[in-house]
Structures are given as C-alpha cells and as structure tokens.
Design a protein around this nucleic acid. Sequence first.
DNA 1: CCTGGTCCCTCCCCCCGTGGGAGAGTCCAG
DNA 2: CTGGACTCTCCCACGGGGGGAGGGACCAGG
Lengths: 265, 265
Amino acid sequence: MSTDLLSIGAFARLCRLSVKQLRHYDELGLLPPKRVDAATGYRYYGRDQVRDAMAIALLRGFDVPLSSIARMLGGDRGVQDAVLRAEQRRLEERIAAQRRAWQALERLVAEGLLHQEVALSREPERRLLVCSAECAPEEIGAAMGRCVEQVTAAAAGLEWSPPLWGRFPVDLRERVAVAVGVAAPTAAPVPGTRVEHLPGGLAATALHTGPYEQLFLTYQAVFAWVHERALRPRGSVYEEYLDDPRTTDPAGLRTRIVVPLHEEE
Amino acid sequence: MSTDLLSIGAFARLCRLSVKQLRHYDELGLLPPKRVDAATGYRYYGRDQVRDAMAIALLRGFDVPLSSIARMLGGDRGVQDAVLRAEQRRLEERIAAQRRAWQALERLVAEGLLHQEVALSREPERRLLVCSAECAPEEIGAAMGRCVEQVTAAAAGLEWSPPLWGRFPVDLRERVAVAVGVAAPTAAPVPGTRVEHLPGGLAATALHTGPYEQLFLTYQAVFAWVHERALRPRGSVYEEYLDDPRTTDPAGLRTRIVVPLHEEE
DNA sequence: CCTGGTCCCTCCCCCCGTGGGAGAGTCCAG
DNA sequence: CTGGACTCTCCCACGGGGGGAGGGACCAGG
C-alpha cells in the first residue's frame, strides 16, 4: 500500500497538473507529498492524494485562489460549502463589474474616448430645498432614491421648479444630496431637509445622454476638458436630471452635469 | 504655454492616478512626461497630457491591459474602435467562462467535491454505427450535433437500439465520435459513417445528471476514483445519452459515463 | 540666507500563480 | 555501465501595481 508511491511526473500526468504546480503546492503546504526522500529531495505521492490534487485542478480551473482551496482541503463539508459560496459571490460581483465595463466600452466605441462636448457657462444663483445623506460609494443609487422621496415629499406643498438636482463631492465618499429649486424663501422645511443657497458663477457643463450608471464617463470628459484649460473646480459637482427615470428609457435619459469653477482666468 | 508644467504629484491628483502609476507608464513609454529635468530626474507633465492620462485611468478601470491602451493612444479613431471591440470580445468570453464557473460551483455546493458514486462494471461488446469528426475543444457541441444528424440519418433504415453514444479520446483534442448500436452486421453504411466493433471489458462507470456542460465534473470524479485504486484507463472514454436533450430539461439530463480499464488487478 | 516640511528621485521587495530555463544530481532499462 | 529520461534547486519573467528605504530638490517663512 504505502509502497505504491508515484513520482512527481507520473502523479502530475494522472491529475492533469504540471510538475511546477505540484512543487508550488508543496511549498505552500497545500499538498505535501506523502514522502520526500531525504537524500535526493525526490517527491513521492500516494494514490490517496489524487482526489485532493484533482480537486485543486478543478477549482483552479474556476480561478479559485489557492488560499481558498487550502481552506477547503483542510475543512469539513460545512467549511467547504461556505468557501464555495463565498467564491460564488466574488464571481457574481466580478461578472457584474465586467458587464458594466462592457456597456461602458460599448459607449466608448459609439462616441470615442472622452470626446463629449463641454461648454463654459455662467450658472445663476439658486435657492434649493436639500436632503443629504452619507453613503458608501456602491449605495449611491439607493441613498439618492431615499433623498428624492424625502425632498419631493417636503416640496409637495411648495412652489418648486421641476428639474431635480443631485450634488456630489468631487472626491466622492462624502455626502450626497438631492435638491429641488424653491421659488420663495421657505420657513419650515420638513425635518431631514433644509433650504440652502447655491451660489452661481462660472462652471463647465455637459449633457450626458444615457443611463446614470455611465455618468462617470461624461464626468471624466468634463474634467479632462477643465484641466486641459487650467481651470480649477470649486467645491461640489452637481447634476440636473432633465428626464424622469421612471418614464424614460435609460438609454435616452438626459442629465446636465455642472462643474463649478473658480472665477480667475 | 509650455511654461505651465505640472509636477508628477499635481498631475497625479488631476488625473486620479497614483504617482507610482505615472512613473510606470513613463517607463513603458506609454505616457512620457513632456519634460524631464536632466539634472534631478524630476518629471513635468503638460496640460495637454491630461486627456491621455484620464483615458488610461478610465480604461484601466475596465481592466484593459496597458498594451492595448498603448495601441489605442498611438492610433487613430479606427484603431481605437478596433481595440475597444477586441477588448469587448475578450470581456464577453471571460463573462461566459465565469458564468460556467458559477454554475459549476453551484453544483459542487449541491453535491460536494468529487463525491459522485462510481461503480466497476463489465461492459458487453458492442457493434456501433459511427460518425466521427475532428474539432477544436470549444466546438465539441456543434461537431457532436452534426455527427448525431449523420448517424441517425444513416441508421434510419436499420434496426438500432435507442441510446446514443459519444466517444472521446482521454486527452481530448483528437477525434470525437457519435454512434448508435446496430443489431445486425450492416453492409453498406452511408458515406461518412462506418461500422465499428467496440470491445467490452472492465470499466468504471458513473451516472451524471445535469447539463452536458458539466459532464467534466463527473469525469473528474470518475478519474479520481480510478486513479485512487491504481486502475489504468484504456483507450477512449465514452458516454451513453439516456435522455433526449430536445425534450428533457438540462438539469435532469442523465448521461452514463464509461471509462474502459485494463483488465489486470 | 537658512531651515523645515513636503515633494521627488531611484532601487528593491512584495503580491498571485505559473512558465521557462540553467546546472547538477538520480533513476532505471538495455 | 551507460545513456536518456527524470528530478532537484535556484533564478527570472509576466502584469500592474503597493510599500518603504535612503537620499536629493523645491519652496515658503523667518
């Protein structure tokens, strides 16, 4: 039984792994040979190691990292399932990210790299009814939705101009805000909302047509345009939502991007 | 104009790249600074390099390799589109592979790692009407389909037993074949098909239930079982398709896997 | 003019998993 | 006993960076 040992080459052929891989897994302690000749360093594997080796080959085929494989080989069925589930979730996220990347590439093919039209404009002062929230970068959609609800509820009794506004800090990861313009000075806003005075002034603006998910592409173009001209962004960036996402096809959603600038020439 | 140069740090902040990245891109010749101070080695970038730098940042965000980005920056619009399209196709393939991996992981969670039941059996001799084809590994499905058509057409006038067979070389990448069993010795097979005698004998068999795409999982389990017992596969492996993929849900498709073995104990 | 803080330089090592190759030693069948 | 196939260790490479050491450069304030 224990005399029936395989050399690394024979074992590699059986398990469809390369000799290099087996040596690497030995180094990591992932699959140490059953016996190592002390004099020559030759590695000898047992038949009962075939199953583990083939499991490694299988999982590596799905790009499961060796560290996860190590946890699985060392654990019982419960651990294995947990690790597999975790790998599945990682895979889901990667797939989602790659689908977004695919869509973005599609748009880049359609309109070229950072070629959107950008204009210099002078924005008027605005009085806004604001609801803001702090959120992680991937929850922006949900946080925005909640703010929209609050702000439209608060504005229901007031006189307000239709386009909805969103404000974002330039470096992200701070506070996002949703606002509507209000005509008259308002005395008692609903709790959670407040009235803010948005100063006007010089700004770079661009019109993004397409899903909100791809807004960042137009932002990138606007910032390229701004920095090329040695203009300096000032404070937070904001967006004007010209269409209603509930009634407009995402591909046709128009959003006006506004990047406020310092006045100096 | 040319006096308005930015230090690497300032340029990095503008373009949302790290200083390390910019130095790396310089080394690769991807984005050499407009001026490098000969005495100090300090890198200075021009405003007109912001666009390229931001394009790099954007594309790296989609995991486009730097070599592809280099081709795009050096090329005109046509080249850019071609490279973008190529990246899209690479992305599609990766997504498809990852979805297959996800499905496979799902199956592994359901039934454990390489835990299928395997049995030792003695297969009878068989006389088969065979159609074979050479094909790349990813076209196996299509090649099999064509063979199935040919073989069923050829067998239409004959007396044949229902289960369809598929044969594959162990190391793949050779010839695949589709066959049906025929009862009587047949004289004149349709061109492109021939009658073969499949020797019987010892074999390891397992029943795979699920889509053909995941057959390799059960194969892996069978080979693990075989090699653990120091049995030696002999010649090509074959499969018996017990259900009709046109009328059965893929999740329920039963396939009997047969791995012929050398007789010795 | 000096000084200190912040910038920037190069160089090296690290990640992950694997392939390639050099140079030397080992195994086994003829 | 010999030759070819096998195996060993050690180093380098990939891609796309991050981290940090050690040392020079820049610039504003005193």
